Structure formats: structure tokens, C-alpha cells
Simulated assay, not measured.
Amino acid sequence: MRVAIAGAGAVGRAIARELIENGHDVLLIDRSASAVKPERVPEASWLLADSCELSTLEEAKLETCDVVIAATGDDKANLVTSLLAKTEFGVPRTVGRVNHPDNEWLFTEAWGVDVNVSTPRIMSALVEEAVTVGDLVRLFTFRQGDANLVEMTLPPDSPYVGRPSGLVPLPENCQLVTILRDGQVYPPSGEQPLEAGDELLFVVSEESEDELQDLLAPRVRKD
């Protein structure tokens, strides 16, 4: 897979290293000469240019990319890069970094962003996930398909404690992804009984979240 990353700062370089380690072809783009230091990620290709310029993206052959990641520290630049990648080059997947939470509402398909990554939202969700039991916590939003990755720590009084996961009548547009228990990851085999304290990860549409909450922990929403 060929991936272009706009922004060669600490975030962009970290993403590049991870993708290269997983066998992907990575191009790092940055307009600052001080940021373009190929020795920091020697396995990547580098381009000193402004990702908001159409000529830059043409030079980068963005039409050959499977994914473009807009990871600069400037939300405006991330939006423009995503929009150009999607509308001018038909890149199948764009990921936009949200630096300021007030700008998150802009990072949608209208601006060419398939997936937005908001650091403040993720950190807040991880805090909630660590301290809440019996409450649905949204961890991530998938722009395509209008679905969310959500987590719930199953409370002891859930009506489905002790019952096989396959017998839980999940709402429409909801899928149990995995069960986390005692530091282990368990696939939702269908016969795996649920236990109090299990961390359950679901992909679910936004309109089905309340139904899922009421199903697994009805007391929480009634209090």
C-alpha cells in the first residue's frame, strides 16, 4: 500500500515508521526545510513542498496513493490537503488530524476527510473508558458508514452476565468486535460466556447506540 503523509513532524514521522514496519510504501511531505530530515526515517521517500499546492500533489503522484494522511499541526492545511487528495486525485482513503477540538466539525466528507483523528477526543474517551462501568463510551468515529467504535465495561447486574455472547440480541447495525478480559483478547465466538467486568468493543451505528446501552446495562440510563 502506498501512503502519503502531509506533515513530517513528530506525529507524521511516528506514523511513517509504524507503516513502514508493517510493509507499506510511505512518502513524507513537508514545506519546512528544517522538518525534512530523511535520516530520521530513511526507509521513507521525502518531498520538500507544500501539501496544499496542487503542483506538489501532482509531483507526489497522489493518484497512485491508497491513503493520504494529513498530519500537520495546522487544521486548515489538513483540510485543504484532504480535499485536494479526494477531489483532484481520487484517493480512496483520507485521514485528517484534528489539532483544535473546535474545528472537529469541519473534518467531514464535505472536506474530503474519510476519518478524523482528534487527540483531545481520544484522550477524553480513554479516561472515560478507564473509569466507567456499564456506560457506553465512544472511542472512534468512522466517517464512512456512519458507525462508531464504542466500549462498555459490563456491569455485574447486566442481564447478559453468564450468557453466551452469541445469544445477545444485538440491535441492527451493531457488531461485537472483541472481548477484553484479564489482559487477554477473546474473539466473539458466540459460545464465549460474558462475565462481569468484561470490556466489550462494538462497531455500531450512532442511531443504535442508545438501544445497545439499554440492552446491556438498562439501569445506568434509568438512574
Rank of each mutant, 00 (worst) to 15 (best):
P38D: 14
L28Y: 09
T178H: 07
L136N: 06
P187F: 10
W111L: 10
Q184T: 14
E199K: 15
T108D: 07
E104A: 12
P218L: 02
N99L: 00
T87L: 11
S82M: 01
P159G: 13
G90R: 07
R2E: 14
E151H: 14
P38S: 14
A70V: 03
R181E: 02
P188R: 01
L27H: 00
V36Y: 10
K37T: 12
V95P: 00
G145M: 08
N22K: 12
K37W: 06
V131N: 00
G90T: 09
A14E: 08
E18K: 10
A10P: 02
G145T: 12
V117Y: 09
S189I: 05
V68L: 11
E21W: 15
E109C: 11
L126H: 02
D210I: 11
D157M: 04
L216P: 00
P38H: 13
Q144W: 15
L126N: 02
A196G: 10
I29Y: 01
R121K: 15
L79E: 01
I179H: 04
V150T: 06
A8L: 02
N103Y: 12
P159S: 10
G12E: 04
K37V: 14
A70F: 04
G162D: 03
V117N: 03
E63N: 10
K86V: 11
V91T: 09
C174V: 03
D66R: 11
E21I: 10
A77G: 15
D75S: 07
A60C: 02
L154F: 06
P218K: 02
A14K: 07
K86L: 08
E43A: 11
G73I: 01
V185E: 04
E128W: 14
S124N: 11
A71Y: 06
A147M: 10
D135A: 15
P38C: 13
E128T: 13
A44L: 02
T72D: 05
F140Q: 13
I179N: 04
T108A: 04
E129A: 14
N78D: 01
E207Y: 14
K37G: 05
S32W: 09
S34D: 13
F202D: 07
R17S: 12
P164L: 13
A85V: 04
A49M: 02
D198E: 10
N78W: 01
P171F: 07
Q192P: 00
K37P: 03
A60G: 05
L215Q: 01
G183D: 05
G12Y: 02
R31I: 11
E206G: 09
E209L: 13
T178I: 10
G23V: 09
E63Y: 12
R97T: 03
Q213W: 04
V98R: 00
W46E: 03
L27P: 00
N148P: 05
M152R: 08
S32R: 09
L28K: 03
V185Y: 04
V150L: 05
T72N: 05
C65L: 13
N103I: 06
P156T: 12
G73R: 02
